[in-house]
Design a protein around this nucleic acid. Sequence first.
DNA 1: TTATGTGTTGAG
DNA 2: TCAACACATAAG
Length: 314
Amino acid sequence: MDVMNESTSEAANSNKLPSSRYKGVVPQPNGRWGAQIYEKHQRVWLGTFNAEEEAAKAYDIASIRFRGLETLTNFNQNQVKPYMDPDNETLFLQSHSKAEIVDMLRKHSYTKELEMYKLKLFNAGAGAGDGDAARKRTKCHVNLMDGYDDQREWLFEKVATPSDVGRLNRMVIPKQHAEKHFPLHLSEELCKGVLLNFEDGEGKVWRFRYCYWSSSQSYVLTKGWTRFVKEKKLKAGDVVRFERSIGEEKKMFIDCRPRNVEVSGLGEMASRVEVEERVQDDGVVRLFGVNIVETRTCIVDNNMCWRLGARISS
DNA sequence: TTATGTGTTGAG
DNA sequence: TCAACACATAAG
């Protein structure tokens, strides 16, 4: 009897939807996430989202619109509040009714509407009296929901080996990166592989077959790879970089650079982590609040390419 | 048939 | 106010 009760309660638990770690976010039976906010004893439904974080951000936007900038949000204050640039997103929120904002969130059109609003400000000079300043401000602005498909997450780089650019029509993806960034789930996927699209720096989309070659026990990009090698004039020693957009779309990017191009380790690092860097008159770069007075880059192994060495002074 | 979102309830 | 659960309704 006890065993039966136990198994019944286990079954009940397995049917139980996972709770969200975010405020205003509720699980949906289909694995998606709903966002809701309460006002005047009534629930306001903010829509359903694929990612828990997206729902949490929708809640944050609604919460700021409903309760003001001082409201408690899911993402920490440093993360959220600076994004609320008073020159446009806050203005955008203020210039729309709560119902309109909710409607945008539910239709997933918030990003587009805000973008159009920013464009309008941009064209109108944003009332700043200084067109350039307004343009700069608008361009620099980052909001909660959008821009993720423009912002890229750096995944890894690989120095192309002679066989990668040879006649084998394949590039070996180092195991640790393959399993981390391009996981193959089903046994069928493991055998046949999957088609992956990558966008290059010119916006051209490249489609490769990505699969696991059991014979060599390696993960490879193949079918279409030779064409990429030819068009990019890729040579052994050149660096191939993989990136992914951090938006919902999770667009993949591929780019390469010649081996002889001197890479500024600082510039690379800075663009990866999107920090502000400032080159001073004496050539010293100020990064993370410290002066970096000497830098060097080197190839550390065949798979991972550049390592930054720097001497710093405070 | 599946996904969405409302009704309702109980906890804090 | 909030989250959890049940379930009616809308959408495809």
